[in-house]
Design a protein around this nucleic acid. Structure first.
Lengths: 135, 135
DNA sequence: TTACATGCAAACTGTTTGCAAATAT
DNA sequence: ATATTTGCAAACAGTTTGCATGTAA
């Protein structure tokens, strides 16, 4: 299967052995569109896909994927971590009623007038969360 | 004392009884400059100021102050909640090395090109976190 | 006097970790 | 063969809650 090979290759490039669990998680995460997952939601999604992966391994793997630059962590709410499969520069809509996240294309949204940075600092990244609710 | 009266008045306006604990917490929080606190840091700060307030009451009070619009909650990192005494529209620098937060004046920083909102939604607020690190 | 607030300890949630068994190279 | 990965269960951190006691109005 082409798809599986590409994903195994992706793990190899990241220096991660393509084990059954990592492949299963990576297939769910990187099957195409941009995804926003929590450990719990990923745990459920991968369970549906056949192979069951323990929750501890889901957490470990999210950390490894993040360290390898395959995922970005999002701070949305204090009680849960979210991971974004889109690691390039972009922003988010957050629906406060149902917790849904939507990407905002960074070519349309611009930030201007950023003040001088604190001395000796550089920007790591800029997070923008547009929190929306029912009108 | 002028200060205490102003703070008691503030609690009254918010519909909160000015108890000893709430007054002690409010004095630490609203003594002038903008503050960014966690439950733990506020717990320590109020202890230094004399009256000891239980950690449970610190949590309860943070929720009440937030519900009353006296504080705003910030999502910075997944493992801890921060509260900001500045509830007006503004943005933040976050120092990834030491966890320090600094306000960014919203009159200089502007966001332009915000795409259309999802149908039937309005903006609750926009969070901008400029994450900085050592150069 | 009555409703509300507090403090303690226990419960709870999301996350991390130690270690023995399983797997990739 | 060797180092890495997995899964379980136990540990952990931050937060919330139940309930008896204390306090404000």
């Amino acid at each position: 299967m082409r798809q599986t090979d590409a994903i195994a290759e992706k793990l190899n490039k990241a220096g991660l052995r393509p084990t059954a669990q990592r492949l299963a998680l990576a297939r769910v995460l990187f099957d195409g569109g941009d995804k926003h997952v929590s450990a719990e939601s990923l745990f459920e999604d991968v369970a549906k896909s056949g192979l069951s992966v323990s929750l501890a391994t889901v957490y470990n793997t999210l950390h490894q994927f993040k360290a390898a630059g395959l995922l970005r962590e999002l701070a949305i709410e204090g009680d849960r971590s979210y991971y974004d499969t889109n690691t390039s520069n972009h922003f988010h809509f957050f629906n406060e009623e149902d917790g849904a996240l939507m990407d905002i294309d960074p070519t349309t949204l611009k930030i201007i007038g950023l003040p001088a940075l604190p001395k000796g600092k550089v920007i790591d990244r800029i997070d923008v969360i547009v929190r929306v609710k029912k009108a």
